[in-house]
């Protein structure tokens, strides 16, 4: 088999094409990123209302305590005695994060779970499966079975729920124990 002959021109052309394409994508991203972020915020706000339908007052806890899991992206105190925790699973699990909003009482009981983004080809019923966690607490949330055929996503969701309990313990002063 003949080996292909590479020369300087090949390297220059390929590099130039890569740079031009990258530049075009950077320009596009400059215009689309703020719109995507705005849509994401709207989705999060909608998910807060979905996991805690009685929400009348919402306050974001901006100063998260040290040791908060890196998957926790935002924490909201709802109606003084409830919390909504917004999580994004680690990119180590998938090329795109799974977005999850968990509503919890101050006592550490899950009141609602909503998947705000899920990009995998195999679905586990993204609107139904997370509801298995409703009513669970830090002691028994691991009892929820993984979904056959979607094991990685099920486990990623379970780990995220665990991180939500960890976060609640930190912001709620150990109420989740």
């Amino acid at each position: 088999m003949n080996r292909p002959k590479f020369n300087v021109k090949s390297i220059i052309v390929l590099t130039a094409i890569c740079l031009i394409v990258t530049a075009l994508l950077a320009v596009t991203n400059h215009f689309t990123a703020p719109i995507v972020e705005k849509t994401r915020q709207q989705k999060i706000e909608a998910s807060l209302k979905e996991v805690l339908p009685d929400m009348t007052k919402m306050e974001e806890i901006t100063d998260l305590p040290e040791g908060t899991p890196s998957t926790v992206k935002a924490v909201y105190r709802i109606n003084d005695d409830e919390y909504a925790i917004v999580l994004a699973t680690s990119s180590a699990y998938s090329s795109k994060d799974m977005g999850i909003t968990v509503g919890m009482s101050k006592d550490g009981e899950i009141l609602g779970v909503k998947l705000t983004s899920y990009f995998e080809s195999k679905d586990f019923g993204k609107d139904t499966y997370p509801q298995n966690y409703v009513g669970k607490n830090s002691a028994n949330y691991t009892d929820v079975d993984t979904f056959s055929g979607v094991t990685y996503s099920s486990n990623a969701l379970k780990r995220a729920i665990g991180d939500a309990f960890e976060c609640l313990k930190l912001v709620g002063g150990g109420a989740a124990e």
Partner: peptide, 27 residues
């Protein structure tokens, strides 16, 4: 585009347009 690197060049161009579509659609 030299013949030896045409496939990588095509893939970069195609991937660029697909990413562009993704960005626009996501927004």
């Amino acid at each position: 585009i030299p013949d030896t690197v045409r496939i990588p060049c095509y893939i970069v161009v195609i991937a660029g347009f697909v990413t562009l579509v993704q960005m626009l659609m996501e927004a």
